[in-house]
C-alpha cells in the first residue's frame, strides 16, 4: 500500500518535473506503437475487406490464421522477428535488429491480425447489398473501400483501439527485437521491466501508471471520435 501511494506520488512528480528522459520514452512509445498501428490499419483494412467480401482459394485458411493471430503471444512474434532480422538471419544485412524499425515491424505483426479480424467483423455487419449499391452509384476500388470503411468506422475505430492497445502494452516483442536500449529503443513497458529488475518498484509502478494514462488518453480521443461518428 505504501508502495502504491509512493508510485502515485512519483508518477505525478515525474510528469510534473518534465523529466526529458521520461518524455522521450513516452514520445517514443507513442511513435513506435502509433506507426505500427497505422501500418497495420493500412494493410489490415484491405485484407479484411477481401476476407469479408470475396471468396478465394485459401480463404478459410487465411481467416483461421487471422483468428489464431489475434491471440498471438507477442514474445513469439518477437523471437520470430529477431531470427529474421538478426545479423545471421535472412534479413540481417539490413542491420535493423535493436532499432525502432524492428520494433515497429514486430508490433505491426502483432496488431495486423487484430485489425484484420475487427475489419472483417465490422464489414460483415454492413448491409449485404451495400457494395453493389456503391458500385452502381459509381464507386470503384479505393473509393469503394473508403466509403465502406466510413460506413464501418465504428468497428474500424474498435480495430484501431484493439491494435494500439495490444502493441502499446506488450513487452515481450519490444524487449526481444528492440533490446530496451536506453537511448534508442526503450519504451514504457520495457522501462517498467528494467526498473522492476533494478528494484525501483515505485518508479516501475509510476511508469505503469503513466502508460495507463497514455493508453487512456488515446482511447479517449478515439472514443470521442466514435461517439461523434455514430451520430
Amino acid at each position: 500500500m505504501r508502495d502504491l501511494l509512493a508510485a502515485f506520488a512519483r508518477a505525478f512528480d515525474l510528469l510534473a518535473s518534465g523529466d526529458p528522459a521520461l518524455y522521450t520514452i513516452m514520445a517514443r512509445t507513442l511513435v513506435v506503437s502509433g506507426a505500427a498501428t497505422l501500418l497495420a490499419l493500412l494493410a489490415g483494412v484491405p485484407i479484411g475487406y477481401l476476407l469479408a467480401r470475396r471468396r478465394f482459394a485459401g480463404h478459410t485458411l487465411l481467416l483461421g490464421l487471422v483468428n489464431t493471430g489475434m491471440g498471438l503471444p507477442p514474445v513469439v512474434v518477437g523471437l520470430f522477428v529477431w531470427l529474421v532480422l538478426a545479423r545471421s538471419g535472412p534479413l540481417g544485412d539490413l542491420d535493423l535488429i535493436y532499432t525502432r524499425r524492428a520494433m515497429v515491424l514486430a508490433q505491426f505483426i502483432i496488431a495486423l491480425p487484430l485489425v484484420v479480424g475487427f475489419t472483417v467483423t465490422s464489414l460483415r455487419a454492413l448491409p449485404e447489398r451495400l457494395p453493389d449499391l456503391l458500385r452502381t452509384l459509381g464507386a470503384r476500388r479505393w473509393r469503394m473501400l473508403w466509403l465502406l470503411a466510413r460506413e464501418a468506422r465504428l468497428g474500424l475505430l474498435a480495430a484501431v483501439m484493439a491494435g494500439f492497445g495490444a502493441v502499446v502494452s506488450e513487452v515481450g516483442a519490444s524487449m526481444t527485437v528492440g533490446g530496451n536500449l536506453e537511448r534508442s529503443t526503450r519504451v514504457l513497458t520495457t522501462a517498467i521491466v528494467t526498473e522492476t529488475g533494478r528494484g525501483d518498484v515505485p518508479l516501475a509502478l509510476a511508469l505503469g501508471l503513466i502508460l495507463l494514462v497514455l493508453a487512456f488518453a488515446v482511447n479517449l480521443v478515439l472514443t470521442w471520435a466514435q461517439t461523434r461518428g455514430s451520430r
Partner: peptide, 8 residues
C-alpha cells in the same frame, strides 16, 4: 435495388 439500403 429492391431493398432500400442507405449510408449513414
Amino acid at each position: 435495388f429492391q431493398e432500400p439500403v442507405f449510408l449513414r
